[in-house]
Each structure stands twice: as structure tokens, then as C-alpha cells.
Write a protein that binds this DNA or RNA. Structure first.
Lengths: 199, 199, 199, 199
DNA sequence: AATGAATGAGCTTTCATTCAT
DNA sequence: CATGAATGAAAGCTCATTCAT
């Protein structure tokens, strides 16, 4: 990587402020996952990121802003996941959604572990909105399934809560007991929640 | 604040140390439910219990001991609930169990709200054991159901995780979004989780 | 000092919270006088008061509250001084006022030294009001002097500013140069400011 | 921000290092006047000067050096003012001096406002010397006035303190209460302090 | 037993100063 | 020379815990 700056003049010392912010956020997520937000010190995050304590404040306004950013990152991932469902029979799409959510959680255990702190954190974090979106997406799939005649009678939006619950409840049990094979739970979730509503 | 007890005669040191401990614990649970454990000060608990800060330490060794006690209280309630199932067809017993767990959570929202702090708290709190017990109880019911021929094939212990998940996941969504009608969710949980495994 | 508390029951550990507040305030004034408010740490004040850092916060909400209290103390002393003038010929009363103000400043050099920090401090400290009161008191004396025919023509409220200025300006020079014999300046102030307006 | 100077040829490193120092100093004085030295950040000064934080250090060794420079600038102005008195009757020269000092303060309110920080600042700032010079100059005028027979008896160097005090005390009251019409106070100061010593 | 004043470790945040670019 | 990201010492404030009364 030749440094051409002597030709084009002065360059900002850090090309990408956003990248540094990402690095710190990821370090923070690792630290939060390891010791929980309540026990995580700014200094821990800085050390994990390999920078000095004060430097964290160049990218984040406060300790709480780190958790907020972790939330936003998670919420964005969730929204993206919900938006990425390909067309097809509704219950197949539902099964795919379940598989993907579980896979995402299992693939990013650090982010998943932070969830317990996001649940604890009050406003301005809006986890309620995240689950509302989940439920609405699944309720939409259930409506589509009914139109397809794939749903047994009596299934409505309240069952969307239960399907979200099955996923998040598995996640919860894994958070509390990491022995539990989270990745293997997609199948039984689908068997219960998808087959459990099929006509 | 003057203590006239030396005039009116001997009084029992403490009518019931255990009762005082209970009062404080219940006050603590209310406070934790209201502001979360992280934001709850010993002084808040003392004020809620109507006693002085230092007096909390006559019944509890530390702030963490309060959370530990809240955990033990919750774990005891859970164990009792699991132990109280009357005989009958397995899936009926399962439905009853679901109904009772949801009813208990809905009836004691303060205790339920503390759960999010219990999930966050690491050792020596052993929430893993609580859910292990839940899963084992439900797995036992599923085994009984299989012997009764009430279970469709392919249902095993992994599905016990999902059934616990459905309950705890509903609780979770309610914690995060109190608008959600927790008490009304027993029915859909049963419809999905019990009917979803029935042969 | 026999401790009778065993007879009358429990007594508050500190009989007088206000007294402790006073002790801390006086310690703070000494520290502020010595190093200036900007360079005074809460820990310095605590050490001067012979207590622990955290104990300062039992009596004062913040570091700024200490300066605020110092201001209030000074303002109260000023008001009291202005209110204590005995009857008599106006210009005699004015001379007495000057003498008393200078004597008070000279007698409490620590409080006087804090004035420079009170001048610097913005709202909510209202030093403007203190000097407004000074000026009004002196303007009142000048009006009385005019009625007595003791005043040469052309003297009005603007000269009250100058009389206050002569006092505070001497104080200022002494603050900046402690060699200056503040206590000896009452006489020349009177000679210039009182005789300078006499008819 | 790219530096094209390597293309358009050599440019003087800095047209005038002293000029840049001046610009920064003036920016600093404005900032100090606005928020006080204690609340003024190096970054504020840099922003006011339109340069980067680090560039301040090319002209000044430290934050304190900025205040020191402001002091030196003020002291120089004072000395110049004292040195510029034209010949004439002593008390006329004194009145002129008062008028000029007040005019200078009123004409440069930012510099005047910094005075309160100069009073607070301890060594190595030597405000004592500034007022010593003022007093000596005025004491000289008073000596000249005595030789001219214009002084009533009993007036000596201590009255020089009072005359300086009248000026600085008016300044002080204006600093604390900007409503006060500083520029209008020259006349009453002269009436009290000059006429008050005239034979 | 009950109290609450006192303690001080520990944490977040700020900002003067440095220095690689 | 100019820059501004990086640093880390420093300070205000909180609060769990102790203990004299």
C-alpha cells in the first residue's frame, strides 16, 4: 500500500470514521456478550478495541450510546432478514424465516448474547418495535397461508405471538444455558409451530 | 424515632426474622420490577420496605443477595408448580401446565418483570436449572403422551424446549411490550404447542 | 460530656446537620481562598474539613453548590451590614458604612478572597444584586444628605456607583496584591468619597 | 483541505508568525470574554480563530499561555496609556487619565471582561504590578498637584489607591452587571476623586 | 435490633496536549 | 506548517457497605 498522500496533499488521518465506529461497536458487543452490559466498563470496550478509553468518545457520545448502537445494529439486521423472504407457499416461507432467524442468532452468538441487555434496557431502546415487526411479518404469512387454504381454522394474529415466542424462547434458554444446541432447534420449532398450524 | 421499648417492657427482638426478610424481599421485587435491578439502589428497597438502608443488611448480606433471593423465590414457585400437576391424560396435563404457568406470571407481574434481570445475572444464579426442570417435566409429559398414543411420531425432548420457549417467549414479548395481553396467550400457546404435537 | 443517649433512646448520629454543613462550607471557603475555585477539588475541601470526599455530598449537591453557598453566605452578610446602620447625619452614616465594610472584608480575608471567584461565576449567582443593593443603600444616604443640605450640588445616584467602586476597587487591589494594607484604606476612601461630595 | 501549494510554487511558511499569534490571541480574548477562561476550551479558541485545535500550539505553548498573553497585552496597553499623558496642570492630567482608562475599557469590552479571569489567575501573572504602576502614576500626579498647590492637605499615596479603586471598582460593577453604563461613569469618578482631593 | 452518617473504591466523562500524516 | 485523531490523567459524583450510637 504505497502512501500517495505526499502527492495529493494532506489526507485525513483516518479515512473512515464509520469504520472505526464499527470496530468499536463490535468490540463493545463482544465485551457486552462476555460480561453483560451492566458489568462492562468503557475501559473494557476500549481495551477490546485496542484503543484508549478516551478514544471511544470520539465515536460514541456515552456508554449508553454503545448499547443503543448495538440495538440499532440488531434491529437493522432483523428488519433486513424480514425483508428478504423470497416468494413461495406461505408456510414454506415461514419455515425459511424460522430457519434464518435461528441461523443468524447461532452465527452471531455475541450479538445474540447482548439481547438480554437490550431486553433489560428501557427507552429510548425500542425492542417492542422489533418484536412488533416480527409479529406483523409472521401474521402476514399466516394470512397468506389462510388464503392458500394451508391453515387450519382458528389461527390468527395471537398465534404469531406464539411463533415469535417459540424462536425467542429457544434463544432465551440458550442464553441461560449455552449447552443447549440452538442451531438444532430450528427443526423442532418448525415442526411445532408450522406443522402445528397447518390444516 | 426514639425507642421507648425500654419503658414498655421487653419486646421480642424480632417477632419473626424470616417475616422481615420476606417483607424486604417483596419490597425488593417491587422495586426491581419498577426500575430494573441495575437502577435499583439499596436505599430504594429500604424505602419501599419502610425501613432504613442499614437494616436491609440485617436480613441480606449484599445487594446481590437480594437478587439471589428473588431468584430462589421464583425457582421455588416454579418447582412447586411443576410438582402440583394432577393425574390425567398427558396432553391435558400439559395444557393445564401451560395455563398455570401463564396464569402465575400474569398474576404476579412484579415477579415476572424481575425475570429479565435474572436472565442477565450470571452465576451463582442458576436459571439454567430452572429451565432444565421445566423441560424435563414437559419431556416427561411428552413421553407419557407417547405411551398413550396421543403423540404424532417424531416428537422428542427437543420439542420440550420449544414448548418451554413458547411460554417464555410470550412472557418475553410481554416484558418488552406490556401492551401485549399475556393472560390471553395461554390459549394460542396450547393450540400451537399441544395440538401441534398431537397425533 | 456524658452520653445520656442510653436513657433517652437512640439519637441521630449527628445532632446538627446544619452545623456540619457550616463546617464544610467554611472549609470550602478556606480552600477556595487558598487556591481559587477553579483549582479547588472536592477532595481538597473534604480534606480541609477532615472528612471523606463522599461526605461532602451529604451536605452539598455538587461542587458548584459550594460556591453558591459561599455566595449566599456573603450576600447575607452584606445585607445584614447594610441593614444595621444606626440613625444620624447621612454622611456620618456613610462613613460608618465604609468603615464597616472595609473592616468586615479585612476581618474575613478568606471570604473576601472568594469574591474574585464570585465575580467570575455567572448565573445563577447574582452578584449584580449584591452591588445593586449596595448602590441603593448609598444612594439613599446621598438623598438623605441632600435633604440635610450636606451635599454639594450635582451629586446623584451615579456617584453611589463610584463610592461602591472605591470600596470594591480597594478590595480588588488587595486581592491582587496582598501587601496592600486593606484595613488602612477606610480613612482615605472616606476622605475622598465622603468629603468629595460634601458641600 | 488539500494543499496545492506544491503546485503553485513556494509560499512563505507563514507570512507572519506574529500576526497569526495575534489573530489567535484576539480570538482567545473573545472566547474568554464570552464564556470565561475556566469554561473556554482550546477547541473553542481554535474554532473562533478559524483554525484547527492543534494549530493553536504552534503559536502558544499551552492554554495558560493564552491567558498569560492576554495579560501581557492588557498590561502593555495600560503602560502605554500611562505613558501618553500630555503636560499640563496635574489634576487636569488626572481627569484625562481617568477619562482615557474608562474610554479604553468601554471601547474594548472583550478585553475588559477578561480582567476578571486575570484577577483570579495567580502567578506567574502579575496583575499586582499593573495596579502598582497605576498607583505610582497617579501618586506622581498627586505630588505634582501638591507642588502646584492644587491639593488640599492630607492627601497622599493612599489616596492614589482610592482613585485607582474608583475606576476599577466601576469596571467591576459593570462586569458583574452589564446594564451599568460604564462609559458614563468617567464624569462622576472625576467629580468625586479629582474634586474630592482638590484644595 | 435499627439507624443513617460516613466512607472510599470505582466509574463516566472531559479535555489539554501530542504527533503521525 | 496544519491538522485532528488519539491519548490518558484528572475530577465529579454515586452508592454498596460499615459501624458508632
Amino acid at each position: 500500500m504505497t502512501d500517495w498522500s505526499f502527492i495529493i496533499g494532506f489526507m485525513p488521518k483516518r479515512v473512515d470514521h464509520a469504520a472505526r465506529r464499527q470496530e468499536i461497536l463490535q468490540a463493545a458487543v463482544r465485551v457486552f456478550a462476555r460480561k453483560g452490559f451492566a458489568s462492562s466498563r468503557i475501559e473494557d470496550v476500549a481495551a477490546e478495541a485496542g484503543i484508549a478509553k478516551g478514544s471511544v468518545y470520539l465515536s460514541f457520545d456515552s456508554r449508553d450510546a454503545l448499547l443503543q448502537a448495538a440495538f440499532e445494529s440488531y434491529a437493522a439486521g432483523s428488519a433486513q432478514l424480514l425483508a428478504s423472504l423470497e416468494p413461495g407457499p406461505a408456510l414454506d416461507r415461514l419455515a425459511t424465516l424460522v430457519r434464518r432467524v435461528v441461523a443468524m442468532l447461532a452465527a452471531h452468538p455475541d450479538h445474540a448474547r447482548v439481547l438480554v441487555d437490550l431486553w433489560s434496557a428501557g427507552p429510548p431502546l425500542d425492542m417492542a418495535a422489533v418484536y412488533r415487526d416480527y409479529r406483523e411479518a409472521i401474521a402476514g404469512l399466516l394470512r397468506q397461508a389462510r388464503e392458500e387454504g394451508a391453515l387450519r381454522p382458528g389461527i390468527d394474529e395471537r398465534h404469531a405471538v406464539v411463533i415469535v415466542a417459540a424462536i425467542e424462547g429457544c434463544l432465551l434458554q440458550w442464553l441461560v444455558d449455552p449447552e443447549l444446541p440452538l442451531a438444532d432447534l430450528a427443526a423442532p420449532i418448525i415442526e411445532v409451530c408450522v406443522e402445528g398450524v397447518r390444516s
